[in-house]
């Protein structure tokens, strides 16, 4: 019985320790990142790697999700003769929820893993220590550019994903569900509000921060060679995905509470 309680205690302590370490890491990154010098070349590099290179993944995900949504909502709607809701519900679902969340999860898989593997390898080969000895703050040089690039590019990716997703549903609706093209677009535009799209973009910015932070944090703290880097990569993706889903709930609560 005592052993069992001790076990729980240990898990709780480890959890609190992790939160503390993460908070310190975030603080260091923010404080160091606010001060010059700014490494604009690094930021630009990361914009391309995190943003531009994620376009195919996000675009394809959005396209198929939009298409499948149109099919499902059509089937669901037809059960109570409400097939005409397809355009408005698809656009709401994509801009508010599926666009940011799916893009966030896909980019987490791609980018958080890549960042954790890269920084983890730099840690175990002492390259991060080497940066410090060359009077370059590793938080400023490695972490801040990635955080900035992710926060900037995720909303852009999601906006593009929103458009592609709606396009996917439009193509499915007009080619195989018998929707009239003009009616589909009119119906969608009438119901969609600016805040639906904006709320999704705000979420995307937060998700971008989570993705880059998890990648950098786990990479920075990786220990012990190839296995350690592997563990860091897994942890980065898993924790980024879970935090994205949790943050999505919290953000939805805040953004749509009236």
């Amino acid at each position: 019985m005592v052993n069992f309680v001790a076990q729980i205690g240990r898990v709780v302590l480890a959890f609190l320790e992790e939160i503390g370490r993460l908070s310190l890491f975030t603080k260091n990154a923010m404080f160091a990142g606010m001060l010059p010098p700014f490494y604009l070349r690094q930021v630009f590099d990361q914009l391309v790697r995190i943003g531009y290179n994620s376009l195919p993944v996000v675009g394809l995900t959005a396209f198929f999700t939009g298409g499948v949504l149109a099919l499902q909502i059509y089937i669901g709607g037809s059960r109570f003769n409400a097939e005409s809701v397809v355009p408005s519900i698809v656009s709401l679902a994509i801009t508010r929820e599926l666009g940011p969340v799916l893009a966030g999860l896909m980019v987490a898989g791609r980018v958080a893993a890549a960042i954790a593997a890269e920084l983890g390898t730099m840690r175990v080969t002492e390259q991060i220590d080497a940066l410090t000895t060359l009077s370059t703050n590793p938080y400023r040089y490695l972490v801040m550019p990635r955080l900035m690039a992710a926060v900037i590019t995720l909303p852009i990716l999601v906006l593009i994903g929103d458009i592609i997703g709606v396009m996917g549903s439009y193509i499915v609706a007009t080619t195989s569900l018998g929707f009239n093209s003009g009616a589909f677009i009119r119906n969608m535009v009438d119901f969609l509000e600016v805040r639906d799209v904006v709320s999704g973009l705000i979420k995307a910015g937060v998700f971008g921060f989570i993705i880059a932070l998890m990648g950098c944090y786990h990479g920075f703290n990786s220990r012990g060679g190839a296995q350690g880097v592997g563990r860091a990569t897994t942890n980065a993706v898993v924790s980024a995905a879970i935090l994205i889903l949790a943050a999505n709930y919290a953000l939805t609560n805040i953004l749509f509470s009236e």
């Binding site: 080969t125 002492e126 220590d129 080497a130 000895t133 060359l134 009077s135």
Partner: peptide, 13 residues
């Protein structure tokens, strides 16, 4: 740090 130089074991390039 500017007054220091360091050669790492694995070179750390």
């Amino acid at each position: 740090m500017r007054r220091f130089g360091m050669l790492f074991q694995g070179a750390a390039l």
